[in-house]
Computed example of a mutant assay.
Amino acid sequence: MMQQILFREAGEQNEIIVYDTDEYGGSRGRFRILQFSDQAMQGAMDLEQPERILFEYPQAMLHLMASGDGGSAGSVFLIGHGIGTIARHCAGRRVKVAELDAQVVELSNKFFGYCGPDVVVGDGRALLAEEAAGSYDFILLDAFSDKGTPRHLTSRGFFELAASKLEDTGTILVNLMGKSENDAHIAAIHTTLRQAFPNVKAFALPAAHAADRRNYILAGSFVAIPYQTKKMAGFTEIELGHGYIIEDF
């Protein structure tokens, strides 16, 4: 595998690396990656097919959104920008993006050609708190590193805030990484989400071994959460055990 470093510098939150590679996910081609120094991959683009979505979780999240509102125009508040994959695929929707690291926003423009909805630099929870009550159809949380999603974005206080900013039929979607089996923290986030939303579903990608880390999506809504398994990019619905409730303090 051949790699070419295009950018490497200490950012506001992490050391950030942008590189080109001729292999991704076992396939040969031309790919560009945005990655933190802790090996947390934040975005990937197929340079030969820029509109192709390489990560599974954006595909699944976009399907859940389309299933929830029939694909109609709606409003989205997105916490976590990466290279802008989700935002650029929200054509027809009113989108507001919050990103903590200004350098990530600059790199998404320079190296990944991001030209979607404007991105506001700042803490996602603080920016969401400034929004009007009931003003969004969807809130998407996609902010994590190898240390996990920040506590203040998975607490009961945050989920109650999110619930207050959603319309009566609104949904929150949370992208997480965790152990494939018996992850107490994932169970805690799931249990905490249930304190704010009456309908909650959990989805996960398959894992080969019990010790492997895998991708989870949690969905919380005031209404039913429809989806088609064949369009969930490999995610399947799972049951999670009861966990502790995450408080702000």
Rank of each mutant, 00 (worst) to 15 (best):
E106W: 07
F138L: 04
E160K: 15
M61S: 03
A73G: 15
T85M: 06
L54P: 00
P58S: 13
M45G: 05
F31I: 06
F111E: 02
A60M: 12
Y114P: 01
R93D: 14
K165H: 10
V120K: 13
G113M: 04
G148D: 10
G92L: 10
C115K: 12
Y114L: 10
F77N: 12
S155W: 08
F31S: 02
L127A: 04
A129R: 13
G80W: 04
R30K: 15
G29T: 01
R156V: 15
G134D: 12
L127W: 11
A98S: 15
D168P: 13
R32V: 01
F111H: 14
Q39F: 12
I86L: 08
K147L: 15
G113L: 01
A60Q: 00
H63C: 02
L166M: 10
R151Y: 11
I79E: 10
E48H: 12
G84N: 04
K110G: 04
Q42K: 09
G70L: 02
T149Y: 02
R30A: 11
R93Y: 04
P58H: 07
D123M: 07
T149A: 09
P50E: 03
Q49F: 06
F111P: 04
A60V: 02
S75V: 07
F77V: 11
K147S: 14
E130M: 14
A40Y: 15
T154D: 01
A91T: 11
F77G: 05
M61D: 02
F158N: 12
G29E: 05
D69E: 08
Q39W: 14
R52S: 06
F159W: 09
F144T: 03
S108G: 14
V105Q: 01
L127R: 03
L78K: 02
Y57D: 08
I79C: 07
F55T: 01
H63Q: 07
G170H: 04
R32H: 05
H63A: 05
T169W: 12
S164Q: 14
S135E: 11
M61R: 07
A40G: 05
A133S: 14
E131D: 12
V119I: 11
F31G: 01
F112R: 03
G29D: 02
A162I: 05
Q59P: 00
V104W: 04
P58A: 10
L64A: 01
T169A: 14
L166F: 08
D146A: 12
F36Q: 05
G82N: 01
F112E: 00
G74S: 15
D142S: 03
R151I: 12
F138M: 07
N109P: 00
R94M: 02
V95E: 03
A98G: 08
